[in-house]
Design a protein around this nucleic acid. Sequence first.
DNA 1: GTCTATAGTTTGATAGAC
DNA 2: GTCTATCAAACTATAGAC
Lengths: 200, 200
Amino acid sequence: MLGAPNRDRNAERREATRAEIIEAAWDVAREHGLAQVTLREVARRVGMQAPSLYSHFASKHAIYDAMFAQAWGDYRRVVEEATPPEHPRAAMRYFVRVWFDFTTADLARHQLMNQRTIPGFVPTPEAYSPAVEVLEGLRARLARFGVTRDEDVDLCTAVFSGLADAQLANDPGGDRWGRLVDRTADMLSDNLGLPALEQS
Amino acid sequence: MLGAPNRDRNAERREATRAEIIEAAWDVAREHGLAQVTLREVARRVGMQAPSLYSHFASKHAIYDAMFAQAWGDYRRVVEEATPPEHPRAAMRYFVRVWFDFTTADLARHQLMNQRTIPGFVPTPEAYSPAVEVLEGLRARLARFGVTRDEDVDLCTAVFSGLADAQLANDPGGDRWGRLVDRTADMLSDNLGLPALEQS
DNA sequence: GTCTATAGTTTGATAGAC
DNA sequence: GTCTATCAAACTATAGAC
């Protein structure tokens, strides 16, 4: 009898090709804009003809979908691997900072993650699930500080993204709103009634 | 000699046609999305053939440009005609409310005013000027309350738009973030050190 | 799995008659 | 100022050979 190999080299290469395509799509998005991603250009960069992409993705939207999932998956990993400070106020600063830095680092990624800029594109539930988990993670972390009401969490998310949006929209590549991260976090902490930092 | 007429009926009708075209474009944008506005569909609604639009606008972007100018002009008018409350804290609530209601009332308009969702479209300086004036107006009004530093104004604008963005992105047509308008305004007032409302 | 060839569609814009 | 006719281009997607 033939022993079943414990690695599927075909599947591995297939997955590698998919990753290559997605990476090329990100490159195009960053250089020319998210909506300007074309199959021809993506294919050109991976050394294929456009129709060959259909061996790996069912449609162009499927590529966007994979990019969406990857982006939110990356952010989830960033959040999960990091260890926020113990103190609630310090943690709040940390949450805002991590979100701000991640979001403002890549405009195309921000547009895909947080805006509906691609006509007709709606992420599939599977692609969307990392985003849901991120929000649940935030909810859980805030709950440890006694922040449990939906409206409190909603206030946080709105203020978080407002800051990053303003930075990208009005001063891309700059620091004008980045300088307000700590202050904004403290403002939220005040409003939520988080305990003051002990002074020594 | 011929007396010069004091009304140019041709110019008036021309202007009326332009307005009609812009209105049709808004209708399409609201029904199908801002990026899905096509000259054919706009023309159809005003009873023209697509090429006829070029008698009134030099390009499709010129239509977007006029829409952009109109949207910010409308908001400027709303802000200028309104009389905010005297008290700083009440005024802050008022500012946020006006912005929130105007922005969330029309997603397509919001995308055109505040996001860069149309590939390649950049508003002309003339179209942009109402937006600048709105910001200057806010700056002036905040200055009356002693809020003069750029970073204070930046904080306000970021929080304002964050709230409206969250509403449109996560609960369009709903009220989940609308309920946070007053609270958010108060949070800003606290942070800016605005005087407390006198209690009776 | 990649290719060539091409279908099929949509779109912005121009030329020129009236 | 509006029309018809048409261009020119771009794009996604499919069919079928290899």
